[in-house]
Write a protein that binds this DNA or RNA. Sequence first.
DNA 1: TAAATAGTGTCTCTTAGACAATATTAT
DNA 2: ATAATATTGTCTAAGAGACACTATTTA
Lengths: 249, 249
Amino acid sequence: MTRDFFLIKGWKERVTENSAEQYDPGKFERPSVTVDVVIFCLIDEKLRVLLVKRKHWPFQGMWAIPGGFVRMEESLEEAAARELLEETRVENVFMEQLYTFGDPSRDPRTRVITVAYFAVVPADAVSHHEAGTDAEATAWFPMDDLPELAFDHREILDYALTRLRYKLEYTTVGFQLLPDVFTLSELQHAYELILGEELDKRNFRRKILAAEILDETGRKKREGEGRPARLYRYRNDAVAEVKARRLFP
Amino acid sequence: MTRDFFLIKGWKERVTENSAEQYDPGKFERPSVTVDVVIFCLIDEKLRVLLVKRKHWPFQGMWAIPGGFVRMEESLEEAAARELLEETRVENVFMEQLYTFGDPSRDPRTRVITVAYFAVVPADAVSHHEAGTDAEATAWFPMDDLPELAFDHREILDYALTRLRYKLEYTTVGFQLLPDVFTLSELQHAYELILGEELDKRNFRRKILAAEILDETGRKKREGEGRPARLYRYRNDAVAEVKARRLFP
DNA sequence: TAAATAGTGTCTCTTAGACAATATTAT
DNA sequence: ATAATATTGTCTAAGAGACACTATTTA
């Protein structure tokens, strides 16, 4: 079989001497690489993000997205999952790579390239978010009322929120923010909190049910006033299938 | 104004000692960081990608996506643009970050994390792709007939193709593969080559024209057989507007 | 029985896809 | 005239959005 391709030659010879393949790794100065994990959660009627208060220079006293340096023996995903576990004690939740931020001046200490991830965790998984007075701590900030952030973390958060809203429309990421069983009103409420707009109840329910990704538990929610609502559970067996097409086709 | 957030304390104290903010950069071993640029082009009736043949260990003699180490003073985008310029002498074309690949074993030399970008260049910009016999060279391979690739570059290429096809549907990236003026048949042909399927001529033209992103040049293409086709030009002033909504809503 | 929340159906408009005949040019 | 390519419109089906009333429970 004859391969069909075009070769290029000539001027290329001039520039290849500093290309990657002839580079001796370890000869030049290297950047540091971190992972930062944007962790979303629905708590107390708001979409919130987990932030940590910095104790040291630079940006001492300012809030930052949790993150840490990538270890030599772990993958990026492992590093991100480790950070998530350390900060929330949660694992096996939705997490995906968001974007890599590498502006040379984003960290005043040295060149730091950060691979940002974003995760969503159900509120009942981050069990005890007791309010405290310890100022050197970790806190769930509402996305609509963020403090001043360290580094370029505001930009990262904005991008993460854009991605979350976007994925809400064509994936099942929204279900990951809710407990195992939930009512359709709770699901719609979660969508409304994240999108920041109200949705029509009938249209919302029609679309969700048409996607055939929910199972009725047969049980009903019995707390609060008003008519008890049916409880649904997310059909895990439907994940792969649903991710291929749009949730709202 | 009272800020509304929850503080978390307690077990966190145990794990913060190796978090990023207390890390002394330079204390630990650092990975190398490269950018790899997947460069697509429509040449000779095929969607092609630019590959370089490796001259040294590892993967000596195998083909690889062009790339190189990120310099300490340049941003990731600058590094990617520099690689693109070095390999193709082209600049100011569509390019965006694709994904960051960081498996610890992806490079046998050392830990190398690569930030992959993908670019599309019009065929008339990479002017002279003269066929040659120099085996240590650069070549445009058709995406449907790729050689064995070095590192995890096959995975990167597959992902880039998926992204390109996806973006074809809701952005104007397809126009970037064509010369400044083009006919609707040529545009449709480009779409068909990339998507690997035939499209209905009437529906395609209706959608493209409905998007109102093309200007008629008033000229007609006069070469080849058959009725001469109208020549169109992409409306650059429409970019921002069109990217917000779907090209094919 | 009043208050609160859950649950349900229709109409219209837009869009997507299937489908074939005519128009213009060169040879 | 013939060959080759360009250009154009209609019908139908599915989905999206707007819209209001009834059902079930607790206090």
